[in-house]
Simulated scan of single mutants.
Amino acid sequence: MEPKKIIENRFFNQKLAESAWVASPEEVVFHFGAMQSQNYSQSLWAVGSRLITPSELAVKKAIDNGEIIRTWLLRGTIHLFSARDYHWMMDLIAPTIDKICRPHRKKLGLTEEILSKASEVVETFVAKEVVTRKELANHLAENNLPNAGIPFAQLLVYLSSRKIICSGPNETFRNIELIPKQTHIFTREEAVQELAKRYLQSHAPATLKDFCFWSGLTVTDAKMALANFTKEDEFYLNELTKNVISTRQIPLAGFDEWIIGYKDRSIVLSEAWQDEIITKNGIFRPAIISDGQVVGKWEKPKKQIELQGEYWDRYIQFRNML
């Protein structure tokens, strides 16, 4: 498949095309299934850049109100995903997270006894109120449980995957009582297929390797999930569309799905920009694209005067810097 055709279709499916923008932050996240949120501030723009009316406040409000959940999910990394998808996604991905983290927990001395005690202590604690990371750490310390550094971080991942904590307002933690009850119980096969559907509707054209990387699923599971989708060459497709890509530049968030959502990024990220955008320790810097291709990088500005060029108009609106 020609790179131009791939970019045209991804541009539309990724909701970067003006004709594809949507009304609410939750709609954006639901469409993607899950969106990388390793950097909280940048992930707000990742969602906001795909809204008809870009608003940082609207994205924050959706997260604070629990419409969007922010916690560890695909590949054991932090993602945004819709509260409507919480139960089936967590049930599907939690075993993979456990497989990734179990060796680390063992090295850190996080025994089953410690994990069990921490689960009971934290479940009781968050039942009363929303808590900050510091408040949670202090409470664990009072109960002689891991409360700092990597052991504490691993404990948070464990508690999240066990549905004991989830994200609350202003980057806090709360219980899952406000999350809607699951209306449909997915079999594992159905859940994997639904994840593939979300991936292709938001990332196609994409390859088997791309989906395996993004989802963290095995090749066997991924092949099963993609079996009923149309394929051209090695690329699985959603509905093909001919989209005229705007030649104006677009500032992307750090860790944006346009780049991080694929194993092979060479179509949009040339070798010349590889080290500038992706650091050796796996940080994805904010990029500027033109015709879908990375042509620069940027840093979060503090003043509107720092933003030169029409392509910043939507970001200025998003940040309410008018």
Rank of each mutant, 00 (worst) to 15 (best):
T124W: 01
H104D: 14
T132I: 04
T132N: 07
S161F: 00
V157C: 07
K106G: 03
L136S: 09
L80R: 03
N144T: 14
V121S: 06
C166M: 05
L136G: 03
N144P: 05
C166Q: 01
W88L: 07
A141F: 04
I100W: 10
L145T: 00
A148M: 08
L145S: 10
P103T: 08
I165G: 02
P103V: 05
T111D: 10
I114A: 05
K134Q: 08
V130R: 02
H104Q: 14
I165C: 00
A148Q: 13
I114N: 06
V131S: 07
E120F: 12
Y86Q: 07
L159M: 06
K107C: 11
R75F: 04
H79Q: 14
L145I: 00
Q154Y: 10
R75Y: 12
C166T: 05
A148W: 02
F81Q: 05
L80T: 04
I164L: 06
A141C: 08
F125V: 01
N144G: 04
V131E: 06
I78F: 15
V157D: 02
N138C: 04
R102N: 10
S82E: 11
L156N: 11
G109N: 11
G109T: 01
A118T: 12
L156P: 08
A118W: 01
R105L: 08
I165W: 03
Y158T: 00
L140E: 02
H139P: 07
S167I: 15
R105N: 05
W88M: 11
M90C: 01
C166E: 00
S119N: 02
R102E: 09
D91N: 12
V121F: 08
A148R: 11
N143A: 05
S167F: 07
L108T: 09
D85S: 15
I164Q: 11
A83W: 11
C166I: 12
Y86N: 04
V131I: 02
E123T: 00
P95G: 11
T132D: 13
A83K: 06
C166F: 05
A83M: 08
N147Y: 13
I93M: 05
H87A: 10
A141P: 10
I97C: 02
T111E: 12
L108C: 04
G149W: 06
L80A: 07
R102A: 09
L74G: 03
I78V: 07
H87Q: 11
E112S: 15
T96I: 14
I97V: 15
L156G: 03
Y86M: 04
R162N: 12
H79V: 15
M89W: 01
K107G: 09
M89F: 03
L74W: 00
K107W: 10
I150N: 10
P151G: 07
